[in-house]
């Protein structure tokens, strides 16, 4: 069992490419992407309705070390500040196999 950080990022489907790029720059060796999530927030409803992905959010889950999170924190904050979204960080324990 190892201590780690669990980072959950909810943002626009279009924005995930850039977020993944930031993760890789911070040394990510893997993540999980849930392609469609729905909800409502300060930038309006995201109901995944319509013929484009303009109203579609995705969710990314990344388990990382403290150092990786420190490297990602500020670039991610600046990006999400511009495009909108939510970042939830919690402490977790992972079972290595």
């Amino acid at each position: 069992m190892e201590n780690a950080k669990r980072v959950e990022i909810i943002a626009g489907a279009y924005d995930m490419r850039e977020i993944i790029r930031l993760l890789e720059k911070a040394g990510s060796d893997g993540y999980t992407l849930i392609p469609e999530v729905r909800g409502n927030g300060e930038r309006g409803s995201r109901d995944a309705d319509g013929l484009t992905e303009a109203f579609k959010n995705s969710m990314l889950i990344w388990v990382c070390t403290e150092k990786q999170w420190d490297d990602l924190r500020e670039p991610l904050r600046l990006f999400v500040q511009r495009v909108g979204g939510m970042v939830i960080v919690s402490d977790c324990t992972i079972l290595r196999h």
């Binding site: 279009y14 309006g44 484009t52 992905e53 303009a54």
Partner: peptide, 22 residues
């Protein structure tokens, strides 16, 4: 446009509100 432009705007002007232009 409500297909091509929203896609481009979400990418290049994410501050814009799709709840308005769409």
């Amino acid at each position: 446009s409500y297909i091509a432009v929203p896609a481009a705007m979400r990418m290049s002007i994410p501050e814009a509100n799709p709840g308005l232009y769409v």
